[in-house]
Design a protein around this nucleic acid. Structure first.
Length: 267
DNA sequence: CCGACAACCTGACGGC
DNA sequence: TGCCGTCAGGTTGTCG
């Protein structure tokens, strides 16, 4: 489900619902998602007040009032909702109840999501992550990182070591907007093109955040609202349809993922 | 070191 | 109606 704009949309929603509230009850309906829940996750959350919710890459970092951090990743289909009146959906795996009686439920059909409690400031899953595209990224930085690489630029943009937050939708959209072929080798991308990739990536991500993310099937914000950036897709999931340039959108597989692009304007 | 690929899991959809 | 193959917003680990 979530790339940076979707995670950011969820973060904003959770921030409004959770910050300042104390967790009084946590219930786990199963022992694992992608990894097992930490043994002591329930005890570490119960009785804690949430003081802030941050995002690093596609991870949500929930700051607790004792200094520890509750790490969340939504995988492909993870979703938080609040004020869920029921907690018996087939894929409702986690429930947290706050002091004021409100309830939030984590639902995740494919269970690729992750939850963990960080004790220090670092975590194995965060160690290798590249720059935040909306903060400390630049054309020079990107050129540095992909220089000499033989992998296709599409694959490199998806690699969270190159830059974080970009997934399959936005990688396709950005490459179409800058008219670069997804098959170009990283090492063959000029510094000027890197600058272009950086500025256009930021633009697309910000537009998508403003639209509340992209809803393909099941993505929804915490309050249930849909993401409207889907309507601004130029190529993603548009095989056979018209690219804005007049060409036709094509699809092929790269490293196991579908790439949507237009051979008329991207080269 | 690098890149392709399978694996994790459920559900939706199209073809027969 | 059912069965099978394919694909889906992500990430990790393995193999050549």
């Amino acid at each position: 489900m979530p790339e940076l704009p979707e995670v950011e949309t969820v973060r904003t929603g959770l921030e409004m619902a959770w910050v300042g509230h104390k967790i009084v009850e946590v219930e786990l309906r199963r022992k694992t998602l992608r990894f097992p829940f930490p043994e002591d996750m329930i005890e570490r959350l119960q009785g804690r007040k949430i003081v802030a919710i941050r995002r690093r890459a596609k991870y949500l970092l929930v700051d607790l009032d004792n200094g520890s951090i509750w790490l969340n990743h939504l995988g492909m289909t993870g979703r938080w909702t609040y004020d869920a009146s029921e907690y018996d959906g087939k894929h409702d795996h986690v429930m947290i109840r706050f002091e004021d009686g409100s309830v939030s439920v984590y639902n995740d059909p494919r269970r690729f999501g992750v939850m963990d409690i960080m004790v220090g400031a670092s975590h194995k899953l965060l160690d290798h992550l590249g720059p935040e595209p909306l903060e400390d990224w630049s054309g020079v930085e990107l050129a540095d990182r992909i220089g000499g690489r033989k992998s296709p630029i599409k694959t490199l943009l998806l690699d969270q070591r190159t830059v974080v937050g970009i997934g399959n939708i936005y990688a396709c959209e950005v490459l179409n907007r800058v008219q670069i072929s997804p098959t170009r080798k990283g090492g063959d991308i000029s510094e000027e093109e890197c600058r272009l990739l950086v500025s256009e990536s930021r633009k697309v991500l910000l537009e998508a955040i403003a639209a509340g993310g992209s809803t393909l099937k099941d993505f929804k914000a915490v309050d249930g609202s849909l993401g409207y950036f889907t309507h601004q897709f130029r190529v993603y999931d548009k095989e056979g349809q018209k690219c804005p340039c007049g060409g036709t959108v094509e699809r092929f597989m790269q490293s196991g993922r579908s790439t949507f692009w237009c051979s008329s304007c991207q080269d």
